[in-house]
Simulated scan of single mutants.
Amino acid sequence: MSKRALLEVIALDVEDAVAARDGGADRLELVADMAADGLTPPTATVAGIRAAVDLPVRVMVRLADGFAAGDVGRLVRAARALREAGAEEFVLGFLDAQGSVDAGAVERVVDALEGCRWTFHRAIDRAADRDALRKQLDGLPGLDTYLTAGAAEGVDAGLPTLLAEAARRGEPGYEQRLLVGGGLRLDHVPHLLAAGIDGFHIGGAARPRGWDGPVSADAVAAWRHALDD
C-alpha cells in the first residue's frame, strides 16, 4: 500500500499509552473496565495520557456494558466533561432493543462533541441491519470510522463481510474508514491489506499477560512490522 496502515491500540492508563507509542502505535483508544468491554475513563486519565504521549487518543463514551444508551443525559454530560479534560476524538455507538441504531442518543452525544472526529464502535456487529445503520448515520458530523470485526463472533466469522464492505468504499454510508478489530490475528492482516483495508485495532493482542497485564511495546511492534512489511 502507498499509505501507512493505521494501528490503534487500546490503552487503560499512562503506562499502556507509553508502551503503545514505543511499539509504533498510531493512535490510542482510551477506555476503562475491560470486564465490561470498555467504558468511559476518568477525566484524570485522559489528561494524564495527553500529557504523557503525543498520539491521537479516541476516548470511549459508554457508561454501561451492552449497547443500549441508558441515561442519555449522563452520556452527554460525560462527553462534555471529556471535552473539558482535553479529549478531541471519541468512540461511541448505541442500539435500540430491536438492534437498530439509537439515532436519538447518538445525535445528542455527537452534538456535545462539537464537531470532533469519532468512531462508531462494534455495536455495528450486533446491528440487525448493518447497511441500514450505515445509511442512517451517513452525514453525521465527525463520523469517520467504523470499528468492526464484520460479525459479533469476530474476524474469523466476519471476514467475508469486511471484504464486501471494503469493496463498497466511497458509496453513500461507506465513505468512512474500516478499522478492523475483534478477534483480529496477524494471519488476517495480508487478506485485509490486499482488500485495501488500512485500519487495525488491537487490545488483548498487545498484552501477552492478558488484561491483567500492561501493553507490551514488543507486541505492538510485531503488529507494526506486519502492517509495514
Rank of each mutant, 00 (worst) to 15 (best):
M1E: 07
R4A: 15
L7Q: 00
V9F: 09
I10V: 14
I10F: 08
A11Q: 08
A11S: 15
L12D: 06
V14Q: 11
A19Y: 06
D22R: 15
D22C: 03
D22W: 04
A25N: 04
A25K: 01
A25T: 06
D26N: 11
L30E: 06
V31F: 01
V31H: 01
A36V: 01
A36W: 02
G38K: 01
L39E: 01
P41M: 04
P41S: 06
P41A: 08
P41H: 11
T43I: 05
T43D: 09
T45Y: 06
A47Q: 15
A47W: 05
I49M: 05
R50L: 15
V53W: 14
D54P: 14
L55N: 09
R58M: 05
V59A: 06
V61P: 05
V61F: 05
V61I: 15
R62T: 01
L63T: 05
D65Y: 02
G66I: 09
G66E: 12
A69V: 08
G70F: 01
D71L: 03
V72W: 10
R74F: 01
A79N: 04
A79E: 06
A81E: 13
R83P: 06
E89H: 07
F90I: 02
F90Y: 13
V91S: 06
G93Q: 13
A103F: 10
A103L: 15
A103I: 04
A103N: 01
E107F: 02
R108N: 00
V109Y: 11
V109H: 10
L113G: 11
L113I: 00
G115C: 05
C116L: 02
R117H: 13
W118D: 00
W118M: 00
H121N: 08
H121Q: 05
A123S: 00
I124F: 03
R126I: 00
A127D: 08
A128V: 13
D129H: 03
R130Q: 13
A132L: 06
A132F: 03
A132I: 02
D138T: 09
L140V: 11
L140P: 10
L140Q: 09
G142A: 03
T145K: 10
Y146D: 06
Y146I: 11
A152Y: 07
E153C: 05
E153Y: 01
G154P: 02
G154T: 07
A157S: 14
T161L: 04
L162R: 08
A164Y: 07
E165Q: 15
A166T: 13
A166M: 14
A166K: 11
A166N: 15
G170D: 09
G170Q: 13
E171G: 03
E171N: 00
P172K: 05
V180P: 07
G181F: 03
D187W: 07
V189I: 15
P190A: 09
P190R: 11
H191V: 12
H191G: 01
L193E: 04
A194M: 10
A194W: 11
G196T: 04
G196Q: 07
G196K: 03
I197E: 14
I197N: 13
G199P: 08
G199S: 09
F200C: 04
F200S: 06
G203M: 05
G203K: 10
G204A: 14
P208H: 08
P208M: 13
P208T: 10
P208W: 07
W211A: 10
W211N: 13
D212I: 12
V215K: 04
S216W: 07
A217S: 11
D218V: 14
A219T: 09
V220F: 08
A221I: 00
H225Y: 07
H225P: 00
A226M: 06
L227C: 05
D228T: 12
D229H: 07
